[in-house]
C-alpha cells in the first residue's frame, strides 16, 4: 500500500530533534553512534512517544503541530515496526505472531493465518510456523519479526537494527531476503543500522544522527564520499578532518604515510600524534593515531613497514597525506553541521 512521501519534523525533548522528508519506495538508513537517538526517532514516528510534532504520510496527517489536529494513535498508524531484539510475543507461535497484525486490521482468523503463512514462506521459514519464539534461532526470530512488520501492509516501515547480534553468515542471508522485500515495498522505509554495508546495499539515502540532531542527510553515495561526522567517516572507511567550519577533508587510511621524523615536503596535511592501537585490517595493519590536535586518524601500513618503523602503542609518529590524495568539500547549505570529534 503506497502511503506517499513521508514528512517528519519532530522533537522528543532531551532525546532527538529531526526534520526530513523521504519519497515513497525510498529506504533511508539511519546511522549514528549509540545514544544518538536513532531508536527514539523510529519510535517517535510510530507514535510511541505521543505527539512529538509534525508527521505526514502523503496527504494523511499522523501528528500535527497545530493544536487543532489530534495525533493519530499508534494503532491507527499504518506502520510496520521491527523492534530491536525482535520482541516476538513469547506466548504465540511464529505464525500467530505474524497473523496478529492482520487480525487486528480486520482480517478474519483464517485469512490472517493464510496471510501469515505466506509471509513466513517469503522469508523462507514456512516450516517453522508452529515454533514458539524460544525455539527459534536469532536469525529465524528476526525473519519472523520482519514478516510480522510487513504483514500489516504498512505505509511506513521502521526497522530497528534488524541484523544486530546475528552471525555474519546469517546476517548476509537475511540481508539478501530483506533486500528483495524492500525493492517491492512501495512505502518509505527507515532502517536503523550500525553497519555501512546495510547503508551501501539496502539504502537509497542516509540520515546521520549525532547527539540527537541530524548531522547529515543525503544519498548514500554523497554521504559515504563526503562524510561530515567522524562516525560515518569510520563506517565509510575514511579519515575526515574539518579544516574550517565549512570545509572538510576526507582521505583513505591507505594514502596516509607514517614517519618518525617530521616530514618536510607537504606543509599543511600533516599531524603529529601518538599511536593508540595497531590492528589487523585485511592484509595490512591499521594503526590509529591520536593527534596533538585531538583528532583520531587511521593509517594502513604493510606489516614490513610497521616492523621497520618499530611502531608500537604509545609511539610518537608523524602522519602526512599528499594534497592530491584527499577530497575537499563543503556541507550543503542548510545542513546542521556538528564538528567531527
Amino acid at each position: 500500500m503506497a502511503g506517499g512521501p513521508l514528512d517528519v519534523d519532530v522533537t522528543v525533548p532531551g532525546r532527538v530533534r529531526a526534520a526530513f522528508s523521504a519519497q515513497p519506495g525510498e529506504v533511508v538508513a539511519v546511522l549514528g553512534p549509540n545514544g544518538a537517538g536513532k531508536s527514539t526517532l523510529l519510535h517517535a514516528v510510530a507514535g510511541l512517544h505521543g505527539p512529538v510534532g509534525d508527521i505526514r504520510v502523503g496527504d494523511q496527517r499522523w501528528d500535527g503541530a497545530a493544536r487543532t489536529t489530534r495525533a493519530l494513535r499508534v494503532r491507527d498508524r499504518r506502520i510496520g515496526l521491527a523492534f530491536q531484539g525482535q520482541l516476538l510475543f513469547p506466548h504465540l507461535s511464529a505464525l500467530e505472531n505474524v497473523a496478529f497484525g492482520p487480525r487486528r486490521r480486520g482480517a478474519s482468523r483464517a485469512a490472517a493465518r493464510r496471510l501469515a503463512a505466506r509471509w513466513l514462506d517469503r522469508f523462507e521459514i514456512g516450516d517453522l510456523a508452529h515454533r514458539r519464539p524460544h525455539e527459534l534461532s536469532g536469525g529465524q526470530a528476526q525473519r519472523v519479526a520482519l514478516a510480522r512488520a510487513l504483514a500489516v501492509e504498512p505505509e511506513v516501515l521502521l526497522l530497528d537494527e534488524p541484523f544486530a547480534g546475528l552471525d555474519v553468515g546469517v546476517a548476509l542471508g537475511l540481508r539478501r531476503v530483506l533486500a528483495q522485500h524492500l525493492r517491492d515495498f512501495s512505502g518509505v522505509t527507515l532502517l536503523v543500522t550500525h553497519d555501512a554495508l546495510d547503508a551501501a546495499t539496502l539504502a537509497d539515502r542516509v540520515l546521520v544522527l549525532d547527539r540527537g540532531v541530524i548531522a547529515q542527510y543525503g544519498t548514500t553515495a554523497e554521504v559515504s564520499a563526503q562524510p561530515l561526522t567522524e562516525h560515518v567517516a569510520r563506517l565509510a572507511g575514511l579519515n575526515v578532518v574539518q579544516e574550517t567550519p565549512t570545509r572538510f577533508v576526507a582521505f583513505s587510511p591507505s594514502v596516509v604515510t607514517v614517519a618518525l621524523a617530521e616530514p618536510t615536503d607537504s606543509p599543511r596535511l600533516r599531524w603529529h600524534g601518538v599511536v593508540s592501537t595497531v590492528t589487523r585490517h585485511g592484509s595490512a595493519l591499521r594503526i590509529a593515531v591520536a593527534t596533538d590536535e585531538g583528532l583520531d586518524l587511521l593509517a594502513d601500513l604493510t606489516p614490513e613497514a610497521v616492523a621497520e618503523l618499530e611502531i608500537a602503542d604509545g609511539a610518537p609518529v608523524w602522519l602526512a597525506v599528499k594534497a592530491t590524495a584527499v577530497r575537499r568539500y563543503s556541507p550543503p547549505p542548510g545542513a546542521a553541521v556538528s564538528p567531527p570529534r
Binding site: H43, A46, L48, R73, V74, R75, D76, R77, I79, G80, L81, F83, L87, F89, F100, G101, R104, R105, R148, V152
Partner: peptide
C-alpha cells in the same frame, strides 16, 4: 509495557 507497544504498532487496542 513494551509488549503493549508492540501490540499497539500492530493495530491492537487496549482491551485486545
Amino acid at each position: 509495557a513494551r509488549w503493549d507497544d508492540v501490540a499497539a504498532t500492530l493495530g491492537a487496542g487496549r482491551w485486545t
